[in-house]
Write a protein that binds this DNA or RNA. Sequence first.
DNA 1: TTGTAGGCGTTATCAC
DNA 2: GTGATAACGCCTACAA
Lengths: 326, 326
Amino acid sequence: MVTIRDVARYAGVSPATVSRVVNGLTGYSTSTQLRVEEAVLALNYEPDSLARGLKTKQSAVIGVLAPLVSDALASEIMSGVESAARSRGYSVMLGRTGLGSEHAAGYLRTLRTYRAAGVILISAAITADMRRALGSAIPLVSVAIRDGLRFPSLAIDDERAAYDGTRYLIGLGHRHIGLLAGDPQSVLVNTVRERGYLRAMAEAGLPAVLEQGNSLYDSAPPALGRLLRRDPLLTAVFALSDEMAAAVVNDLQRLGRRVPEDVSVLGFDNTRTARHVHPALSTIAQPLEKMGELAVERLLAGTDLRPRILPHRLVERGSTTQVPPG
Amino acid sequence: MVTIRDVARYAGVSPATVSRVVNGLTGYSTSTQLRVEEAVLALNYEPDSLARGLKTKQSAVIGVLAPLVSDALASEIMSGVESAARSRGYSVMLGRTGLGSEHAAGYLRTLRTYRAAGVILISAAITADMRRALGSAIPLVSVAIRDGLRFPSLAIDDERAAYDGTRYLIGLGHRHIGLLAGDPQSVLVNTVRERGYLRAMAEAGLPAVLEQGNSLYDSAPPALGRLLRRDPLLTAVFALSDEMAAAVVNDLQRLGRRVPEDVSVLGFDNTRTARHVHPALSTIAQPLEKMGELAVERLLAGTDLRPRILPHRLVERGSTTQVPPG
DNA sequence: TTGTAGGCGTTATCAC
DNA sequence: GTGATAACGCCTACAA
């Protein structure tokens, strides 16, 4: 391994000077800068992150934790995180915490012992346990979930978004609208979204029909079955994730119902998944990539970690239409 | 931050002794062990990974690099990697290298400066550049891709798997079978799989019809269009990834063709995606999770990093059937 | 402008 | 069985 001393020897200067040049500080002549840079190149020197971090008490790593890193939602947020991090010279360390965030504390401890610059939590609420595991020195922000006002977060107005989605279906003439809710574990998004749906239905004087899934594909078919049993006249299903909405579209077709002619389906998130079914999903869009970028920005700025609300919007595709006549 | 010296002071022993206890070495009495353990708990001490790594020249991190970390294939491999790593006390650092592996070298350099214990590459070939960026001290293994015999890898026999898939379709009576190939960038899997298809078709005296996609969903519809134009009598499509196969199923239905009654569709990988369409995909299964586990095992064993072939198998679901009569 | 020296928190090699 | 002590590679006062 080539160290700073090797470079110093090669360039005929002291290690301190090499450090200054490498870190872009001031206090050296152009000629020494050149000699050092040449030596760095010649020896293919790269500062040891471990040693540097030990000294500076900070490593250029941003941790990103998600229940599954594999879902489209996390993926699109991560994409924003990574480009923002890279452009600032930070590396991203991803970790999958499990559906119930089982491994979150472990990852946070690791991140702490590596003195990460900050941690981004996707689709998971910040709990006191987590905050403790990470320690107080490292900033933490939650994305795509709103955790009251107590912890830093970046999210849309979930209540309003669900309200708007429901209003949209009502506007198409639907009166029997079922809600396929998400993971009850993620209470913070889902109860809030449920509230938006319930408010819109109540305002319109319509009966609410609600079943729980867990946001993932496989949870939707059984929940859809329960929904249809409770209200056989359903002409619209509002699923609180695109994965569930996709499953609903597929399962409806399996049951011989046409989408959207017989039943309209509205998704949530506007991930890639929304376009991976036929017909493609109408859905509520969150600015996922933007959220990822902002999270990095705010984490590194260190200041202004107050909860922030971003705009949502409705995207119309083929899975929704006017209520069928008769 | 609480250091080993704090613990030592609290327990009334020297830092050296604390280190011995914490690392489970020998050379202390039961009574001091108890005192130290008590102190560790009381102070909530956790060794600084940076300092430890600096000293031991190794950190308990395994890097996992994938083009997208978000696809179902990478996700299932990662799942195996993580459980195997966790059970051995290692953390996993994920990185997305981009479809053309653009960012791989950067990640490898970072991993090197953090003195990672090893690196696992998913769906990407090990190039000389990568090997150089990582340095020679850190082991590297490639998963789900076979890179000739020059570099360590863990994969199925792709040629044989594609051959078997094609034989299966031929066995169902199909004579017009189109191949939807994968990313030409990943030459190492795809040319090999193509070869398997071509061999099976040639053996059966059938004409080959082949178009290129890039393994992802969006690339499939246009490629399917080209396939159908070249052979309007197609009764089966063999797509070299489940994502493409799912897109084919959806697009076929959009075009008014029934799956599998009019056209059979065979996928590849057996990821979650295979069950996320209607009808669910018949597909060639790779032991993805197992691959991830094995990769960790071999990386840490350090020895026996020779290429290894794992078994594949055919999974029948609803997307394939006998050739339509007439 | 440049170099020397000390220390970040840990482990490992010695003594005792 | 236990404790000084040095060293890992780097950064940063401070001195020159």
